Amino acid sequence: MKSTFRLIIGTSILCLTTLLSACGQPGPLYLPKPPAAKPTAKSGAVAPTTSPAPVAPQQ
């Protein structure tokens, strides 16, 4: 009886210790922002702008 009780207590302590050991891990608690995209156009070049297709009026 005593050995079973000690096994249960020992296993419980081991599990609790394992779970609590992760509480103090350092690191950011948020997702970092993705890096800004670098422009691929050559310097001085202007990217062409696109306009939406004209919409016919509803009748």
Results as ranks from 00 to 15, higher is better:
57 P>C: 00
38 K>V: 15
5 F>M: 10
43 S>F: 10
33 K>A: 15
20 L>D: 03
38 K>C: 05
31 L>E: 13
21 S>R: 09
59 Q>T: 07
51 S>E: 06
43 S>N: 09
30 Y>S: 10
36 A>I: 06
29 L>H: 05
39 P>K: 12
22 A>I: 10
6 R>E: 07
17 T>M: 12
55 V>A: 09
7 L>Q: 08
27 G>V: 06
16 L>N: 08
43 S>K: 14
43 S>T: 09
47 A>D: 03
24 G>M: 03
50 T>C: 03
23 C>P: 00
49 T>D: 03
2 K>C: 07
31 L>K: 12
24 G>H: 08
53 A>L: 12
52 P>D: 06
8 I>V: 15
6 R>W: 04
25 Q>Y: 08
42 K>Q: 15
14 L>T: 14
47 A>W: 01
5 F>P: 00
21 S>C: 14
53 A>H: 01
42 K>R: 12
53 A>K: 10
23 C>W: 11
48 P>V: 04
6 R>M: 14
50 T>F: 02
14 L>N: 02
17 T>V: 13
14 L>W: 02
11 T>W: 05
23 C>I: 11
36 A>E: 14
29 L>R: 11
9 I>C: 13
2 K>D: 05
46 V>E: 08
22 A>N: 03
34 P>R: 12
48 P>N: 07
17 T>C: 14
35 P>C: 10
25 Q>E: 14
5 F>R: 10
46 V>H: 06
13 I>N: 05
17 T>R: 05
3 S>M: 03
43 S>P: 09
15 C>R: 05
15 C>W: 09
39 P>T: 15
45 A>W: 10
6 R>G: 01
37 A>N: 07
36 A>Q: 13
22 A>E: 05
48 P>H: 01
48 P>R: 08
25 Q>V: 12
56 A>M: 02
56 A>R: 04
19 L>W: 12
33 K>C: 01
6 R>Q: 12
45 A>F: 07
37 A>W: 03
58 Q>L: 04
58 Q>N: 01
17 T>Q: 03
18 T>D: 04
29 L>C: 03
45 A>R: 07
12 S>I: 03
21 S>V: 05
36 A>R: 15
47 A>G: 00
12 S>H: 00
18 T>M: 13
14 L>Y: 02
45 A>Q: 14
34 P>L: 13
56 A>G: 00
12 S>A: 15
33 K>H: 06
58 Q>S: 09
21 S>K: 05
27 G>C: 03
7 L>E: 09
3 S>I: 12
48 P>A: 14
30 Y>A: 03
14 L>A: 15
19 L>C: 07
27 G>H: 09
45 A>Y: 07
20 L>P: 00
2 K>A: 14
44 G>R: 07
38 K>P: 11
59 Q>L: 09
9 I>H: 02
22 A>C: 03
17 T>A: 15
44 G>I: 06
52 P>S: 06
55 V>T: 13
6 R>F: 13
16 L>R: 04
27 G>L: 06
6 R>D: 14
56 A>S: 06
56 A>Y: 00
17 T>E: 01
40 T>F: 04
32 P>G: 05
